[in-house]
Write a protein that binds this DNA or RNA. Structure first.
Length: 206
DNA sequence: CATGGGATTGACT
DNA sequence: GTCAATCCCATGC
């Protein structure tokens, strides 16, 4: 596996969000496969870049292939990959990973044992990987936090899409993407998500 | 300089 | 289901 080149990110952010599924994030000895993402673009009000170029949003408008890390609710660091050509404010939020390596390190950082609780959320995965605000604006190809390419394309139907989580504006856009049936996807599960090994989700009320 | 609002999580009812 | 924790930054005076 090789680091994703800048050209990979210099495309429509929704395409990048979909294609980041299955890629690997490495920080130190900890690594995980991306199983859930969300796209954000300056043209819609849920994106931080919607307000224009400020000190906070500067990385979003910078060159593609770098990290945008910010603090959420005063507690969590959230990791994004900056996309689209320089000058366009857009990024993909990494929402969940399937742990691959350094799982004991992740357990230690998270303070929980259950493997499905290590990286099943945007705040959880940064804590598990040890990603912090100091990684803001670092290069995802050559810096301490690296995004590695996946080997091949997904089968049709492997990816589900749905509305983004936790936003109040532009909530109708189906810009959340996840690997269908993967147990490391965060809550709430996207529409159409199906648990692995089951024919269909239980629908009856009682 | 003061204020208000989050791209969340975990604990509790 | 509800709610508090707690930091950064954009905005307005």
């Amino acid at each position: 596996m090789h680091p994703l080149p800048a050209e990979f990110y210099a495309r429509p952010v929704v395409d990048v969000a979909r294609e980041l599924l299955g890629c690997t994030i490495v920080h130190g000895r900890a690594a995980g496969m991306i199983v859930e993402t969300e796209a954000y673009h300056e043209g819609e009000p849920a994106c931080h870049a919607f307000v224009g170029l400020t000190e906070r949003t500067r990385p979003l408008f910078g060159p593609p292939g770098r990290a945008y890390v910010y603090r959420s609710y005063g507690i969590h660091a959230l990791l994004n990959a900056v996309c689209e050509p320089e000058g366009v404010g857009a990024a993909v939020l990494i929402r969940a990973l399937e742990p691959i390596e350094g799982i004991e390190e992740m357990r230690s950082r998270r303070g929980v044992a259950d493997e499905c609780e290590l990286c099943s959320g945007p705040g959880k995965l940064t804590q598990a990987l040890g990603v912090e605000l100091e990684h803001n604006d670092s290069d995802l190809g050559t810096g301490p936090v690296r995004f590695l390419a996946r080997a091949r394309r997904w089968e049709p139907g492997a990816v589900t899409a749905g509305p983004r989580v936790g936003i109040t504006r532009a909530a109708e856009l189906p810009w959340r993407f996840a690997l269908a049936g993967n147990g490391h996807v965060s809550r709430p599960r996207p529409l159409g998500w199906r648990p692995a090994g089951r024919a269909a989700p239980a629908r009856s009320r009682g």
